[in-house]
């Protein structure tokens, strides 16, 4: 019996963002963009979906007069990520 994969996380870019954020305390939008090779527009849309799901916190602020977006994974996001990995394992080792 396969566990259902969380549709929010079972998307390449959203999963990449969550995988980056799971290992750090917080990361800037530009860091996520560089590591995922995504376009700014696409990344913004996916980050909004993760935020709406409560998986990440997004803080917008100014640094040296430039807008800065900082993303941080939430407790709910960590739990969802761990459940997703657990579900993946059931697929890999049925």
């Amino acid at each position: 019996m396969f566990d259902e994969l969380d549709p929010i996380l079972h998307s390449q870019l959203r999963l990449a963002v969550m995988s980056l954020l799971i290992g750090v305390r917080e990361a800037e939008f530009t860091f996520l963009k560089e590591k995922t090779n995504a376009t700014a527009g696409n990344l913004s849309v996916q980050i909004s979906k993760l935020k709406d799901a409560g998986y990440i916190d997004v803080v917008k602020q100014f640094k040296d007069n430039y807008p800065q977006t900082i993303c941080k994974i939430t407790k709910k996001g960590i739990d969802a990520f761990e459940m997703y990995v657990s579900a993946l394992q059931s697929y890999m080792n049925p």
Partner: peptide
Amino acid sequence: SLQVIQSM
């Protein structure tokens, strides 16, 4: 999925 997680 696993490859994405590992690489990130």
